[in-house]
């Protein structure tokens, strides 16, 4: 009950020489001092580091840190056939960027997008690993479609490809699927299309898997409670920077499991223990402890690594003490 988890990405480098391994290796690759195989081995090595760092911090359900991902869009879209990657665009309201994919031909993914990555992480982790995917609506909204010439057809095609990927991942042992699909909160008027896309996506879901729909970069006003009608098991949202989400959640009973992003992943200011305890109390008035897990509000790559590490350890400590206190009383 009441578990601690991470979402999406983790800082790829830190300030120590050892933590700068990946940055150095890319620079060496640019200077043609090392080959691509060496870069790939380094990504494995850094993935190993950040998995251990999450576990050491006390996280109970981790991600692979998306060390191989340049951004939320291009890693996954770049592996599909039919997309061409173009110029840099800002990712939501962050100071990070992604290469916009342009769909120029029928989309397919003859090979798996993420199976190898998942297997690698799952094999070395001593705690469960989530499979993290960017949602079909967000990939579609942040891309350009010059082939299907119809947003819905385009997004449904992406839903089918991602659905197939879920099946492949489930076959190699993934049981928890985390979908980052935040673009809905920037395009709330399109919630009907979103529903169609997610219904399609879910038609591929095997039984007995947990599916998290994680929505950040905005609040759920006008989206909740209807969003609960969609076929996923766990609703994830930002309860650190989006203060309005508290009112939204308290307005109508929550019928899904909840993944509450209560740690601000976009600011270095440390949460106090009292603040986090207060949020846990409030959350337990909304869902039962069995149905609650907590996490940062976003992937942690917006923070320096030292700060990310500290925030995770702080969250895990508060949750541990909170659980112990609850068991006693």
């Amino acid at each position: 009950m009441l578990t601690v988890s991470t979402v999406s990405h983790y800082p790829k480098i830190g300030d120590s020489l050892e933590e700068q391994l990946l940055r150095r290796t890319y620079a060496q690759f640019d200077r043609k001092e090392v080959d691509l195989a060496h870069v790939e081995r380094t990504k494995d090595e850094v993935t190993r580091q950040v998995i251990q760092e999450q576990i050491d911090a006390g996280v109970e359900l981790i991600t692979d840190g998306q060390i191989r991902w340049n951004d939320a869009i291009t890693y996954i879209a770049g592996k599909m056939k039919g997309f061409e990657l173009t110029g840099l665009l800002r990712y939501f309201d962050t100071n990070t960027f992604y290469r916009q994919p342009i769909c120029k031909a029928e989309l397919t993914s003859p090979e798996s997008l993420l199976v190898k990555d998942f297997q690698f992480a799952n094999a070395i982790s001593s705690v469960p690993v989530k499979a993290v995917l960017t949602g079909p609506f967000t990939i579609a909204r942040l891309s350009q479609d010059k082939h299907y010439k119809d947003f819905e057809v385009f997004a449904l095609k992406l839903a089918a490809i991602l659905g197939e990927e879920v099946k492949r991942l489930a076959q190699v042992g993934a049981t928890v699927f985390h979908f980052d699909d935040p673009a809905l909160l920037w395009f709330k008027k399109e919630k009907a299309v979103f529903k169609k896309i997610w219904t399609k996506l879910a038609s591929y879901f095997p039984e007995n898997i947990e599916t998290i729909l994680f929505l950040n970069f905005g609040d759920l006003k006008g989206i909740y409670p209807e969003i609960q009608d969609l076929p996923f098991t766990t609703l994830g949202l930002d309860l650190a920077t989006e203060t309005e989400n508290w009112e939204v959640l308290e307005s109508t009973p929550c019928t899904k499991k909840l993944l509450a992003g209560i740690v601000d992943a976009r600011n270095t200011k440390m949460e106090t223990e009292e603040e986090l305890q207060g949020k846990l109390e409030k959350l337990l008035a909304i869902v039962s402890p069995e149905n609650l897990s907590v996490s940062p509000s976003h992937g942690l790559e917006f923070l320096p690594r030292a700060s990310a590490k500290k925030k995770l350890a702080n969250l895990a400590k508060v949750v541990r003490e909170f659980r112990e206190a609850k068991v006693k009383t």
């Binding site: 800082p11 790829k12 480098i13 830190g14 300030d15 940055r23 890319y26 620079a27 640019d30 340049n70 951004d71 840099l88 100071n95 990070t96 960027f97 992604y98 270095t268 790559e301 917006f302 923070l303 320096p304 690594r305 030292a306 700060s307």
Partner: peptide, 15 residues
């Protein structure tokens, strides 16, 4: 001034 954060690719800056 903070530790390094990434903006894109292999580009990092201090915030």
């Amino acid at each position: 001034i903070s530790g390094l954060v990434r903006s894109y690719g292999n580009r990092y800056y201090r915030k």
